[in-house]
């Protein structure tokens, strides 16, 4: 067992999260993908903190949690307001913006 295993796991989770953002059309699911990516980064930070014997990695991870919490509030508020307008949370539904 080596610490690298944690890092590989984090890499996999990060990739899955990014794939979810790119593939899923439901904004809530896509947003959960972003959350997973942030958590993967946190796992990396915590692992490296242990590797370096330096706590700042953990502190950064802590800040990330705070930031993520604020982000979630904003994001979900936006999603809810869109839902109230359209009755859907899909990115595709009635997409008014041409791409």
């Amino acid at each position: 067992m080596s610490l690298v295993n944690y890092l590989v796991l984090a890499g996999i989770l990060f990739a899955i999260g990014s794939a979810a953002v790119l593939v899923r059309r439901n904004s809530i699911v896509a947003f959960m993908g972003v959350e997973l990516m942030l958590n993967a980064a946190n796992l990396t930070l915590v692992t490296f903190a242990r590797m370096h014997g330096d706590l700042s990695g953990q502190v950064i991870a802590f800040f990330v949690m705070v930031v993520a919490a604020a982000e979630v509030v904003i994001g979900l508020a936006i999603i809810v307001s869109i839902f109230r307008t359209r009755g859907s949370a899909s990115l595709d539904d009635a997409s008014l913006l041409k791409s």
Binding site: V4, F14, A15, I16, A19
Partner: peptide, 14 residues
């Protein structure tokens, strides 16, 4: 691209 990302990150750390 996600697979590529996973492989890249995995390769980088391993």
């Amino acid at each position: 691209s996600a697979l590529g990302l996973a492989i890249l990150l995995g390769a980088v750390v391993t």
